[in-house]
Simulated assay, not measured.
Amino acid sequence: MENQANIRNIVNIKTPPAQPGFLGPDHTARAVVYHEFEHSDPFILLMDDFLDKKDDEPVGGPHPHAGFETVSLLLEGEIGDEKHMMKQGDFQIMTAGSGIVHTETIEGRSRMRLLQMWLNLPKADRWAAPRVQDLAFENAPATEMNGVKTVLYSGAFAGLRSPVKNHVPLVVADIRLQPGAKLSESLPASYNAFLYVIEGNVMVGQQALEINQIGWLSRDSADGTSWLAMVAGADGARVVLYAGEPQHDEIVSHGPFISDHQEEIKQLYSDFRHGKMRHVSTLPEGQRFNY
């Protein structure tokens, strides 16, 4: 039974603008979560990248990361190279940890839309051994009833449980609602959570959330259960739910690296320049997981 005291409500709405991306004139990017870590912990940033590439020149390339995890959900298209390709609906968590180099390449003409998050690591796991976990869309746990289809990529939600391993407790769910359909599901009360609307609109309590808007949900710092309830508008809706356990640690961010101290950032740049970071494609089997 829902506890009215623990109903999640919308407490903050933002409409991130589409801005020119770094991959050229065919790339637009929305900074869904950006420069607000004191409120968004454990979520460092979330970018919504859309590429409608009309030429045959490859874009992207290899680059390093360390001190956090990338959480990627491909909404449309394909991204990667011949050694590893993500397709529409695929999900990946890459634990950069002590340092890793990966390649995100788009060859030829293509349309691609990618949600990529930087997720903080617990302080004890900041320099964990790198690992990559890939969950294919067709293998992601899913349920459909009463006009609501939920695909779960991480954590436990809607009676589903993802096989993905988490350093930080994390729920990522892609929720599609038919017109007027209602969802009511539980979430840990202490998780920081938000909804990002991909299509249509939803009502959360008395608050409407429209396409391309992010709605931050109320949170209780105590352990226990909270309830998320939403109703789709006349055209239906598609929303992505992100919910994670805050880590309450300050971070230092610079370029592609996250750390606890500025001195560590300098060491990470030195490690990268001296070739001490392995490319993700060279990780041993014990650090690569396919579900």
Results as ranks from 00 to 15, higher is better:
residue 27 H to S: 06
residue 282 T to G: 04
residue 37 F to N: 00
residue 39 H to V: 01
residue 204 V to G: 02
residue 231 V to G: 13
residue 263 E to C: 07
residue 139 N to A: 15
residue 15 T to R: 14
residue 77 G to S: 10
residue 144 E to I: 09
residue 267 Q to M: 08
residue 106 I to P: 00
residue 200 G to A: 03
residue 266 K to M: 12
residue 168 V to M: 07
residue 5 A to K: 07
residue 279 H to Y: 06
residue 46 L to S: 02
residue 34 Y to V: 00
residue 183 L to P: 07
residue 151 V to F: 07
residue 18 A to M: 04
residue 185 E to Q: 04
residue 47 M to D: 01
residue 13 I to D: 00
residue 75 L to N: 02
residue 244 G to K: 07
residue 114 L to T: 08
residue 160 L to N: 09
residue 171 V to G: 01
residue 44 I to W: 02
residue 176 R to E: 09
residue 75 L to P: 04
residue 200 G to Y: 03
residue 206 Q to E: 13
residue 176 R to M: 07
residue 96 A to E: 11
residue 30 R to H: 02
residue 64 P to I: 00
residue 228 L to Y: 14
residue 32 V to Q: 04
residue 278 R to P: 02
residue 164 V to N: 05
residue 218 S to G: 11
residue 251 I to T: 15
residue 134 D to R: 11
residue 81 D to W: 01
residue 135 L to D: 10
residue 225 T to Q: 15
residue 42 P to Y: 03
residue 35 H to Y: 03
residue 94 M to R: 09
residue 41 D to Y: 00
residue 97 G to W: 06
residue 2 E to N: 02
residue 276 K to I: 03
residue 30 R to M: 06
residue 287 Q to F: 06
residue 89 G to A: 06
residue 233 G to Y: 13
residue 92 Q to A: 13
residue 146 N to S: 14
residue 225 T to N: 13
residue 266 K to I: 12
residue 194 F to I: 12
residue 210 E to K: 12
residue 123 K to G: 13
residue 270 S to M: 06
residue 194 F to K: 02
residue 249 D to K: 12
residue 22 F to R: 07
residue 289 F to A: 08
residue 243 A to M: 13
residue 141 P to M: 14
residue 269 Y to S: 05
residue 188 P to M: 05
residue 230 M to I: 14
residue 173 A to Q: 05
residue 172 V to N: 01
residue 273 R to N: 13
residue 9 N to H: 08
residue 241 L to T: 13
residue 4 Q to D: 02
residue 108 G to S: 10
residue 49 D to H: 01
residue 95 T to A: 07
residue 185 E to D: 10
residue 267 Q to K: 15
residue 142 A to F: 09
residue 172 V to R: 00
residue 90 D to E: 08
residue 225 T to P: 06
residue 41 D to G: 05
residue 85 M to I: 07
residue 103 T to G: 01
residue 7 I to V: 06
residue 153 Y to M: 08
residue 222 A to D: 15
residue 128 A to N: 13
residue 65 H to Q: 00
residue 60 G to K: 08
residue 119 L to A: 13
residue 74 L to Q: 04
residue 84 H to Q: 12
residue 262 Q to F: 13
residue 123 K to M: 12
residue 253 S to E: 14
residue 229 A to W: 05
residue 207 Q to W: 03
residue 227 W to L: 11
residue 148 V to G: 07
residue 276 K to Q: 10
residue 212 N to G: 05
residue 85 M to F: 05
residue 261 H to E: 15
residue 80 G to F: 05
residue 109 R to C: 12
residue 61 G to H: 01
residue 211 I to E: 15
residue 190 S to L: 08
residue 108 G to T: 12
residue 11 V to C: 01
residue 152 L to S: 06
residue 272 F to D: 08
residue 230 M to V: 11
